[in-house]
Design a binder for these strands. Structure first.
Lengths: 131, 131
DNA sequence: TTCCTTGCAAATCGTTTGCATAATG
DNA sequence: CATTATGCAAACGATTTGCAAGGAA
């Protein structure tokens, strides 16, 4: 559908995301890449993030803070969002796909996916608030 | 904290939400109430929805379609979002709170909540697409 | 040369906010 | 009367888009 041509901006955006585990926003990507691409435009960042997400090369996380976060780790895993500092952290946890079966029991449609975010206070915030 | 005064707009907004099971957006609330309140303003709708959500009288649902949906049913339950028609449907399903325990097992912070949305094709869309 | 991609700026969309006025307690 | 709530419009932040120019195939 889309013959897709190479662009060094897109490559840089994907490479950058792969180096990060903190799930940056479009703006963070933009600002981090500006030193290397002085006339990079925010529009290009948004366009490529959307494209990469559509291709399944990255994940778009709608964590509920108003701005989308992105993750180059597309393997199935879950995220935790700290209610204090807002950081988005990967969770290493067992499979919970059975919740789809539970959800589908009294439902007359097809469930083929779910999105789950966990909330609370992260380790760092727990420590720093030992008041 | 907030001495809260009565307003017929707020009452109408809450009453309206209670009559609906389809989780309207702010704009839907606004348009549905306009016949009764010709000079109701969208700002008032947003202000009251935010207020009611803060008070815990309604739920704000961030289903991922860019606009918030609201639900006057504040009892614990889950939602399904149809990927075809976008409708937001209540699910009657058993408790899955154990996913928080599973998530917390290898995590050094405190997990005190989760948000889960199920996706797929709703009953109506399944029927209408029996191609 | 074709047409995808970029940079830039303007436009959109959902939502929030400032302010003068109206309504509540 | 003290204050909260409203309507209106302007302001906002995140994201998208139109367009002319640049770069890949």
């Amino acid at each position: 559908m889309a013959p897709l041509k190479y662009s060094k901006q897109r490559e840089a955006i994907l490479d950058f995301l792969k180096t990060r585990k903190d799930h940056p926003t479009a703006d963070m990507v933009y600002n981090s890449l500006r030193p290397d691409f002085p006339n990079l435009s925010l529009g290009t960042v948004y366009r490529n993030l959307a494209l990469l997400a559509d291709l399944g090369e990255i994940l778009r996380l709608r964590v509920g803070d108003g701005t989308d976060h992105f993750d180059a780790d597309v393997s199935p895993h879950y995220h935790f969002i700290c209610s204090e500092c807002g950081s988005v952290i990967d969770l290493e946890m067992g499979n919970i796909d059975e919740i789809e079966d539970i959800a589908g029991m009294n439902f007359d449609g097809q469930i083929c996916g779910h999105v789950t975010y966990f909330y609370g206070k992260c380790g760092a915030c727990c420590k720093s608030s030992m008041s």
